[in-house]
Design a protein around this nucleic acid. Structure first.
Lengths: 257, 257
DNA sequence: CGAAGTCTTGACAAGACTCAAACTGGGTGG
DNA sequence: CCACCCAGTTTGAGTCTTGTCAAGACTTCG
């Protein structure tokens, strides 16, 4: 169950109460890059942000089939986006971290996916209808919105390719590399890095389309080969080069070499 | 190699030359639902459509890593959207048919995917920069653009789930059902249908993440079980119910039964 | 006619899943 | 303090799905 906290921790952000000042003032998530060409609309954007919602690990933020009423900026914590099948199988399509915008689908439609808090998480909801209205009045917000959609789409195609073509080792390698890059940056990673990855092997399995048992075996193999080591929610990248090789999905031009 | 045909078949559409009148006048693809609240912008939309390009089977429409310069409305024929890996593996993410808009990524960025004609195909290119400009001037075009992006994203998540969680039979069943529904409509399909599916087993394999040999085995099984029969580019759906069961990915609410 | 691509089948190998069991660490209640 | 339970992790043995290799039939096209 989410708890609303209009400003219970809001003091950190200057004492705004009843609004999520964080993603607006600091231009996080959806609001990043949104300029102020229209002061009236811009303050309407700020006003559209509703009170925070705080979730515990395992809490459902929205379920598949719910009618879309809000989009969400993720303020802190990890969230899993997933699709559930009638027989209980589940595919996690992405792990989100602070700054992500999620829950975007046409207003009034039943959602084709769900979102669940993996760790404790704080999100800032924005009513879909207000968001659509603001997009039409704030061109820079509209562009930012489209940019995020395009990024989501591209990420989905990359993940899809890894699931379709990759071996178990490649799937896990790709996922771990993505998480490490997001946490440490590509440059830091190249020198090796230790990052926090608060995911159980079960979650890794649901994200890679494998069983938790097989994930365990592959992780052991990667550990024995001194590529990466995942223990107690901490990922240590011992051999970035070989991790890159595992995760190589051919981002750029390919096949003409 | 594409051949430009400004109007070589254009007579069918009233003799417009040098422009793709079809998707504009008939409101196909991107242009569907775009109203005429702004006559000047609307005619600019029409003018932005460039000459058709005509492709033969196997022609590359754009390659992975190309810089995005155009988006495309698909006028006729089948097109495969795919991602290529450095070692030659390839994942087809979607088969497109008439009315699809494709090639959408941020202008000036290297594309993260490729598009190849599966059959002979006719496409109508729209320069990305003009499209972006028009989006800002034609609100209804902007909404249509976002709607198409959201549909693409949702489709990618569904495919991703099928690849991650489905057995070989379910993957192939899902794909064939999707193609049958698109060609015949869900109602027609419920009564059984025979539709054109001009795909080789190799292409089905690249779309489902299986080998062509295994696709062959599964198709034989589906034929022997009288579910579907695929021969000579024609798909006959003998048992729509069982095909539905194979393809059930749980679009709506799930898990609370 | 030969060449190339597709479809089909069989035999075998490898990868991934299932089942079963033991081990770990952290909580909970007696 | 200890016994117990729980979720997560680890390992082994066996099975099933899928991939690999090899070969033949068929069609199309030059």
């Amino acid at each position: 169950m989410p708890r609303e906290r209009s400003g219970s921790r809001g003091d950190r952000f200057g004492g705004f109460r009843g609004r999520c000042a964080d993603c607006v003032l600091r231009r996080r998530g959806l609001c990043r890059g949104v300029d102020e060409e229209d002061a009236e609309a811009s303050s309407a954007l700020e006003a559209a942000h509703a009170a925070w919602r705080v979730y515990d690990p395992g809490d459902v933020i929205y379920a598949q089939g719910d009618i879309s009423t809000h989009a969400f900026n993720l303020i802190s914590g990890w969230v899993a986006v997933h699709r559930d099948m009638p027989d209980g199988r589940r595919q996690i399509t992405r792990f989100l971290q602070a700054g992500a915008l999620f829950g975007i689908e046409p207003a009034g439609e039943p959602l084709g996916h769900a979102a669940t808090a993996v760790t404790g998480a704080v999100v800032c909801p924005i009513p879909t209808l207000k968001l659509d209205d603001l997009r039409r009045r704030l061109p820079s917000l509209n562009e930012r919105f489209i940019e995020l959609l395009e990024q989501d789409y591209r990420h989905a195609l990359e993940t899809l390719t890894t699931l379709g073509q990759g071996t178990a080792k490649e799937r896990i390698g790709s996922l771990l590399r993505e998480l490490a890059v997001r946490a440490a940056g590509a440059e830091m990673l190249a020198a090796g890095a230790v990052v926090r990855v608060p995911l159980t092997q079960r979650l890794l399995a649901e994200a890679t389309g494998l069983t938790a048992i097989h994930v365990n075996r592959v992780l052991r193999q990667l550990r024995e080969e001194l590529v990466v080591e995942l223990r107690d929610g901490t990922l240590a990248v011992n051999d970035p080069r070989r991790l890159d090789a595992l995760a190589d999905r051919g981002g750029g031009r390919v096949g003409l070499a």
